[in-house]
C-alpha cells in the first residue's frame, strides 16, 4: 500500500457521524465550562511596559488590544461555544469560536511569557471550524427536518463519510504530539537520568514547597525508591510510545488510559492541572461502542 493511500485511509475512511457529534458536544461544552470566567479583557488595562509581542502580533503590528475589543471578542467567543455545543448555526459558530478563541488565547502570551498550556486548543478549534460537524444530532439537524429550506451551510448530512472521521483523528494526533514532544524534551534535556528514582523523588517533594498538591500521598511515595523508579520509567515510556496509539487498537487501549492516569497523577500528586489537555480526552472515547446499546434500544 502506498504512503498516500495509507495517509488517506488513516484520515478519511468513512465513519458514522455520532462519535464526532458527541466529541462536538463534549469539547465545546467543556471549553465553555473551562472558559466561563475568562478575564482576557483585563489585559487591555495593563501598562505597555509589559507588552512583548509574539511574532504573530509583531507581524500584525497591533499594540495592546483595547478593553472594548477584548470584551466584544469574549462575548462572541462564549456565544459561539454555546451554539457550537448545541449545534445551532454550527458552521458559523465553529468559525467564530476559532477566530475569537485563537485571538483571546493568544493575547496573554504577549505579556512576558509564552506558555504551551492552551496552544493545542487553537488547532482543535481550527480543525472543527474546517469540519462538517453539526450535520447530525444538532439543533441544525432538527431545524432542517422541520423546515426543509433551513440552510445546511455546506454540511450535507451523509450516513457515513470521511468528514466524520478526520476531526477525531486530528484530536488523536494533537494529543500524541503533546506527549511525544514532552518525552523527547525530557530525553534531550536530561537523558535517561530523568527516569531515575532520585529525580522522581525530588519531583514529588519539590511541589510541596512550591504548589499545593491535592493529596499528601506524594510525600509517602517519595520514600519508596522502587516505586519512584518505576513511575519515572513508566512516565517516559508512556510519553515516548504515545504515537503507537494512533495505529494499533490494542496499544491504544493501554497507552491512552496510562497517559490519562498520568495526567490525573500530576494533578493529585504535584498540584498541577493542564486543564486544556483534558479537553482532548473526548476524542479518544469509543463513542460508537458506548452508544451501541442506546442505538439498538432506540430501534
Amino acid at each position: 500500500m502506498t504512503l498516500a493511500r495509507r495517509w488517506n485511509d488513516f484520515w478519511f475512511t468513512p465513519e458514522p457521524a455520532l462519535p464526532l457529534e458527541l466529541c462536538r458536544v463534549t469539547f465545546f461544552g467543556g471549553l465553555l465550562y473551562e472558559h466561563r470566567a475568562i478575564q482576557a479583557w483585563q489585559w487591555g488595562e495593563i501598562d505597555p511596559v509589559f507588552w512583548f509581542p509574539t511574532p504573530i502580533f509583531r507581524a500584525l503590528g497591533t499594540g495592546i488590544p483595547s478593553v472594548s475589543v477584548l470584551v466584544a471578542c469574549t462575548v462572541a467567543y462564549k456565544l459561539a461555544l454555546l451554539c457550537a455545543c448545541l449545534g445551532l448555526l454550527t458552521r458559523i459558530a465553529t468559525c467564530v469560536a476559532f477566530a475569537s478563541g485563537a485571538f483571546l488565547l493568544a493575547v496573554p502570551h504577549n505579556f512576558g511569557k509564552v506558555h504551551h498550556s492552551d496552544a493545542m486548543l487553537v488547532f482543535l478549534l481550527g480543525a472543527l471550524a474546517l469540519s462538517r460537524v453539526g450535520s447530525h444530532y444538532s439543533v441544525d439537524a432538527w431545524l432542517r427536518r422541520r423546515f426543509p429550506r433551513f440552510p445546511t451551510f455546506g454540511a450535507e448530512p451523509a450516513a457515513i463519510s470521511g468528514e466524520y472521521r478526520w476531526p477525531i483523528r486530528f484530536g488523536w494526533v494533537a494529543s500524541v504530539i503533546i506527549y511525544f514532544a514532552a518525552g523527547i524534551a525530557k530525553l534531550r534535556e536530561s537523558g535517561l537520568a530523568w527516569a531515575t528514582a532520585t529525580n522522581f523523588h525530588n519531583l514529588l517533594l519539590r511541589h510541596h514547597y512550591t504548589h499545593e498538591p491535592k493529596v499528601m500521598w506524594g510525600l509517602g511515595l517519595a520514600g519508596l525508591p522502587l516505586v519512584c523508579g518505576a513511575l519515572a520509567k513508566l512516565t517516559l515510556v508512556g510519553e515516548l510510545s504515545a504515537p503507537l496509539a494512533l495505529f494499533d487498537v490494542r496499544l491504544r487501549c493501554l497507552i491512552v488510559p496510562a497517559l490519562i492516569s498520568m495526567q490525573l497523577g500530576i494533578y493529585l500528586l504535584l498540584g498541577v492541572t493542564f486543564r486544556a489537555f483534558l479537553l482532548l480526552i473526548p476524542f479518544w472515547i469509543p463513542w460508537d461502542v458506548l452508544a451501541k446499546p442506546f442505538i439498538r434500544a432506540a430501534r
Binding site: T54, P55, I56, A102, L105, A106, H109, V114, H116, A119, M120, V122, F123, I177, I178, Y179, A181, A182, I184, A185, K186, R188, E189, S190, A193, W194, N199, F200, N202, L203, R206, F274
Partner: peptide
C-alpha cells in the same frame, strides 16, 4: 512559537 511548542514540561532534572 505559539501556538507551536516542543512541550518541555518538567524536562530538566529536579
Amino acid at each position: 512559537h505559539w501556538p507551536f511548542s516542543n512541550y518541555p514540561m518538567y524536562a530538566g532534572l529536579a
